[in-house]
Amino acid sequence: MFVIPDRFSYTVAHSVEEAVELLHTLEDSKVLAGGQSLIPFMKLGYASPKSLVDINRIPNLDYLDDSGESLKIGALTRISRLCDSELVAKDYPLIHDAALQIADPLVRNLGTFGGNVCHADMGDDLPAVCLAMNAEMVASGPSGQRVLAAKDFFVDRFTTLLASDELLTEVRIPKNRRGCGGAYLKLERRVGDYAIVGVAAQLEVDGDGVCRSVGIGLTSASTKPIKASEAESWLVGKSLSDEVLDKASTLAMNTSNPLSDIRGPAEYKKAMVKVLTHRALKLAYKRARGGL
C-alpha cells in the first residue's frame, strides 16, 4: 500500500526554457531532479503531483565552476560529485562536510544540490550550508532569471521563494579566500538520518584571528532552515576566544526553536544547537587558520 505512488503524467525537459514552460503549462506539476526526497514522499502519499517534469536530461546543469567571482554549482550537480571533488574538499570544507553526511552514498549518487535545497525540509543539510555561506540562488521562470539571497529563499518547511513555474538552475557560493574556513557538524540517530540538529559555520578571519565575517546556518533547529543572525552579528570584529564562542553559541541556541519529535525533545535539540555551534565554530576557525 505504501510503496506505490499515485499516477502522474511524465515529461522529459531538454532545456531550462522547456522545463519552465512545462511547469508553467502543466497542472499541478513538480520538478523531478534526483528524486531522492520526492519519490519517497510520493510513495508514502505525502505528495501526489499530477505531472512530473524530469530535468535530469537537461545538458549543462551539472557543474562546479570556480573560474569567476564565485563558486557556481549547477542545480543538477549530484551530491556524490561534491563528496568526490578535490576542489570542494580543499576550498569549501563546509560543503564537503555536509555533502558527506547527506543520507548515504547511493542516495548521494542521484540526489542533487538543487533538489536538496529546494525540498527545503528543516532536516535537509544543504539549506543550512547555503545560509551559512550567504549563497545566491539563481532561478529561471517564465519572465526570465532572478537571483535570490539564501537568507530570503527558505520561506517555510518545504516552501521556498520559487514560484511553481520557476526552476533553480544554479547556486553561487562566495569564493574561498585566504582566512576562510567552514565546518558542518551533524548529530544523527544513525548515519544518514535527518539531523537531530546540524550546524553549518563559515568564518573569515584576519591575520590576527579576528572575525571579519561569519555565517551560521542551522538544520532541524526550527520548522525551517534558519540562520543564526544574532550570533553572526555578535561575532564580527571579535577574536574567537572560548568565551566569545560560548556567547555566540548561546545566541544561536536562543535563535532556535526546534520541535520535539522522535529525534529528541526540543530542549535537548536546543542544547545541542549550542554545543554544536561551539564545536563547528571552533573547527571552522582552525581550518580558517590553516589547520585541518
Partner: peptide, 19 residues
Amino acid sequence: LYPWKIRRLLEEKGYALDK
C-alpha cells in the same frame, strides 16, 4: 540509551558541557 536521555541525566547531575 538515546543521547538525549544521557544528556538529561548529565544536566541533572550538573555534569553536562555546553561545548
